[in-house]
Computed example of a mutant assay.
Amino acid sequence: MNTEQPARLDWFKSSYSSGEGGACVEVADDATAIHVRDSKDHGGPQLAFGRSAWSGFVADLGQDRI
C-alpha cells in the first residue's frame, strides 16, 4: 500500500452509489496502482493498492462466505 498522492486522477463512484450522502468510496487508477478515497473527503487521505492486490480483493468480494 502506498500513501503517495499522484498529481491528477479521474475519480469515479460505483453506479450503485446514491447521491444521498451515504458511506461511499471513490476509485481511480493509474499505470501502477488503484487509488481509493472517501467520497465525502476529497482532500483527505487516499490508499493506493497494487493491481494484483486490488484484483484479488475484487475477486474475493464475489465469493460466497459462510
Rank of each mutant, 00 (worst) to 15 (best):
S39A: 09
L47I: 00
S18M: 10
F12R: 15
S55Y: 04
Q63N: 14
W11P: 08
S18L: 12
A53K: 09
S55F: 06
L9P: 09
D38W: 04
Y16M: 12
A7Y: 02
G50A: 12
S55C: 09
I66F: 13
D29I: 10
G21F: 06
D29E: 11
A59Y: 09
G21Q: 06
D64L: 14
A33T: 07
G62K: 15
A53T: 15
V36C: 05
G44S: 07
R37W: 05
S52F: 07
K40T: 05
I34Q: 04
S15H: 14
G43H: 05
G62N: 14
G22S: 07
T32F: 03
S52D: 13
D30S: 07
V36S: 04
G43K: 01
Y16T: 08
W54Y: 11
S39I: 00
Q5L: 08
V27L: 06
D29R: 10
D10S: 14
S39K: 01
S17P: 08
D30V: 01
V27A: 03
I66Q: 13
E4N: 09
N2I: 00
S52Y: 00
D41R: 12
G43R: 05
L47Y: 07
V25W: 04
K40W: 07
M1P: 11
F49L: 14
R65V: 15
D30Q: 02
G43Q: 06
K40M: 07
H35A: 06
S18Y: 09
R37A: 02
W11E: 08
L61D: 11
R37C: 02
Q63L: 15
G56I: 11
G44A: 06
Q46V: 11
I66H: 13
D30E: 03
Q5K: 15
A53W: 02
I34N: 01
L61R: 12
M1A: 13
N2E: 13
E4V: 00
H35M: 04
G56Q: 12
F12I: 00
S52K: 11
G44P: 07
D10H: 12
V27F: 03
C24T: 06
V58N: 10
A7M: 06
E26R: 03
Q46G: 04
A28P: 06
V27D: 01
S15D: 13
G21W: 07
A59P: 11
R37E: 03
T3K: 12
